[in-house]
Design a protein around this nucleic acid. Structure first.
Length: 103
DNA sequence: CTATTGACGACAT
DNA sequence: CATGTCGCCAATA
């Protein structure tokens, strides 16, 4: 079951360019719900469009990669593969520059 | 319909 | 600067 909110989340997430990351809060704001960052995380956790939607590009506002349905390590690996360097602590290098602000 | 949960965020200590 | 607590929204039981 795909709700309108989740659909919006996935659609918005597809806009994120390769090599860039977006915060849960920013993504939530782009969906019209500035405070729904938790709900966004939930939507991504289900992740019905795993390879189609780049859910691994969504990171926490504090610079940490956050979690991942298949394991945060996998997420980090994918990010590195796209050119996003991640510290062993889990924080993205040059987070401010890598962060993609929608609209 | 009510309660609990979760890939979080901001503020307080 | 590091840890702890409360608040947030939507989905699910």
């Amino acid at each position: 079951m795909i709700t309108d909110f989740e659909k919006k989340v996935y659609e918005t997430l597809k806009k994120i360019p390769k090599g860039r990351v977006v915060s849960y809060g920013g993504l939530a704001r782009a969906c019209g719900k500035p405070g729904a960052f938790r709900a966004v995380g939930n939507a991504l956790n289900k992740n019905p469009f795993a390879p189609e939607v780049p859910c691994h590009r969504v990171v926490r506002s504090d610079g940490l990669v956050g979690g991942f349905s298949s394991g945060a390590e996998k997420k980090v690996k994918l990010l590195k593969k796209e050119g996003v360097e991640v510290d062993k602590n889990g924080n993205v290098r040059d987070f401010g520059k890598r962060l993609f602000v929608i609209r």
